[in-house]
Design a protein around this nucleic acid. Structure first.
Lengths: 119, 119
DNA sequence: CTTGAACATCGATGTGTGTCTATGTCTGAT
DNA sequence: ATCAGACATAGACACACATCGATGTTCAAG
């Protein structure tokens, strides 16, 4: 079966709407955006996201990320999977190593949705 | 005991730092920001926040909010308390009614922290 | 083919959370 | 003083989640 219609992750279709303060979010919109926020609403995942996004080259290897935390390797792997599944992190395997890359457009859309001052 | 030193809620001291992609978040910073995101990371609370923020006059009465959901009154009250406790919502009682107001500066700080494209 | 390293998946466990019903606390009106 | 309405709190319960150790999978090297 073809996956050609699903090249875009959930993050692309969720946060591309008007800011919170401009008009009420529909139940459906809220249901799409909330999972993205939930993925970020964990101290470890927030730091992971920040580490990957601010890393040189725009990507970071899992081995580097593991060392930055006092947690087990499966736990870090789990958090990375959460961020990847909701479309906030891209994943690429090169040899034995796996590199993650932040989806800055998704982050930008989310940020724009949350914070937009009204006059 | 005086509360004069606590006029500012948690939201003011949490999200006033550099964007995610510029430099790695410290564990302490992540620990301060995550609760704010966790408060927003629920479809009901996200809609509540949006309803209050986009409401005429910048504030909304609880009775109005209750009618917008198919949930019990205590449940809505609980969600409003979560948003209020983390500093995203201001609370004011006038007569029998209670009005909530969105802290747009807190929302703006959070949005800026999450979404900021890097060159 | 075997070994070791990098990473993911699985199953278990304690803790957190969203929701409800029932009850409490104000406040204005009768 | 009593009553009714608006909202908060308390307790209970089902479910989700963060974490771990153990195990599986994939790949490169020897």
């Amino acid at each position: 079966m073809s996956k050609s219609l699903l090249v875009l992750g959930p993050a692309e279709t969720a946060a591309c709407c008007s800011p919170l303060s401009s008009q009420p979010l529909s139940a459906q919109q809220a249901g799409q955006v909330a999972p993205l926020l939930k993925a970020l609403a964990d101290p470890v995942r927030l730091r992971l996201m920040s580490l990957v996004a601010s890393h040189a080259g725009g990507e970071a290897c899992v081995c580097d990320l593991n060392d930055a935390f006092d947690l087990s390797q499966p736990t870090i792997s789990h958090h990375l999977k959460v961020l990847h599944d909701c479309g906030l992190l891209d994943r690429e395997k090169r040899g034995v190593w796996v590199y993650y890359r932040a989806r800055t457009e998704a982050l930008a859309s989310l940020g724009a949705l949350i914070g937009s001052a009204s006059p």
